[in-house]
């Protein structure tokens, strides 16, 4: 008897799967890095919400936060790390596997 293939949803990473964090990683994957106001505007987030999501991603090592100054103005940049890129790719693979399964495609492990 063959082992049942585990459901792909079990492979979803909570830190990445949350919709705002997934959107943040997607923007940073495309932009490489972005500053706080750009992320706020693009994703329509509040200061507090953005800060907390970035903190979660930073604690997981998926995003690197750099604080600096431009003239007298403080500026915070967020950049995706190689781990963040890998986590985003893995998440996309799991989502693709879920969609395939939903449409009656072959049950296959993600990645």
């Amino acid at each position: 008897m063959t082992e049942p293939v585990p459901h792909p949803a079990l492979d979803l990473d909570d830190a990445v799967h949350q919709k705002t964090r997934l959107a943040l990683l997607t923007v940073l994957d495309e932009a490489g890095r972005a500053d706080f106001p750009y992320l706020k505007k693009t994703l329509a987030l509040t200061d507090g919400n953005l800060g907390r999501h970035l903190e979660v991603l930073s604690q997981q090592g998926l995003v690197r936060i750099t604080k600096g100054h431009e003239g007298r103005r403080p500026r915070t940049w967020a950049a995706i790390t190689p781990e963040g890129q890998r986590a985003l790719t893995a998440e996309m693979d799991v989502l693709a596997a879920l969609v395939s399964r939903f449409h009656g495609g072959p049950a296959r492990p993600p990645g």
Partner: peptide
């Protein structure tokens, strides 16, 4: 606010987000 339970209108369409 908690990171896991936001009500932000973040776009779910990731391709559109990349295009933006």
């Amino acid at each position: 606010e908690t990171p896991g339970a936001d009500s932000s209108p973040a776009m779910p369409d990731l391709d559109r987000l990349r295009a933006r």
